[in-house]
Design a protein around this nucleic acid. Sequence first.
DNA 1: TATAATGCATAGCTATTCTATGTATTTTAA
DNA 2: TTAAAATACATAGAATAGCTATGCATTATA
Lengths: 111, 111
Amino acid sequence: MAKRHELMKGSVDSLLLHLIAQQPMYGYQIIKELERRSQGYFKFREGTLYPALHRLEKAGLLLSRWQTLPSGQQRRYYYITDKGNRVLVEKRNQWQEFLVAVNLIVQPADA
Amino acid sequence: MAKRHELMKGSVDSLLLHLIAQQPMYGYQIIKELERRSQGYFKFREGTLYPALHRLEKAGLLLSRWQTLPSGQQRRYYYITDKGNRVLVEKRNQWQEFLVAVNLIVQPADA
DNA sequence: TATAATGCATAGCTATTCTATGTATTTTAA
DNA sequence: TTAAAATACATAGAATAGCTATGCATTATA
């Protein structure tokens, strides 16, 4: 399943693309934003987030730039790429198809 | 994520419980039924299905009984248990919560 | 001044799903 | 009638994802 409908193995990549497409963000901010917006539902771990971000950057869907605050603090901001936006549209469609399929199983029109 | 919201790691177990709760089935039939009802979307592989069924049986959510057809053909039918039904209700609620959370990210009320 | 929060990162574990097989029987089509 | 396709169950091995646990460093708070 995973190869053909990546949604099943997790929605992490999609969620990250959605979020970063709305606004460039850095890792820690992503964790907090996902938690805030989902009203506490999503609590990403670093061990989930950072490898995912690196994976998405390596795939050319995101790109990152280090930014230095006046305080000297370093932050790594992630931006979505054109390719990332195209994939995002695809993933959104796939998600809808997946929901339809699940509903056909869970609430069958015919048994 | 996987430990707290199993849905993310895949919906295989939920789909199987839903299906078998509606009607006891054997493995091959499950593969065909999932494909038919989802209009071709779900195409479970044996390597996905059978380990999953064994897993669910071991967890006490399903139980199986061999049945012999007049032709002599053997089929292993799976039935949902009481525990399986309870877990099914839980999973359905979790799935709804997950959908709500995803929508809050994908279509944010506030950005 | 200790603790919590911010900020990035990786190593190792476990679980899940896939691919690729294997075996055997029954039905269908050439 | 016989080859091929469908039916039916099963597992080994590989890939991958997400988790736990940990490390380091800085800044804000109690």
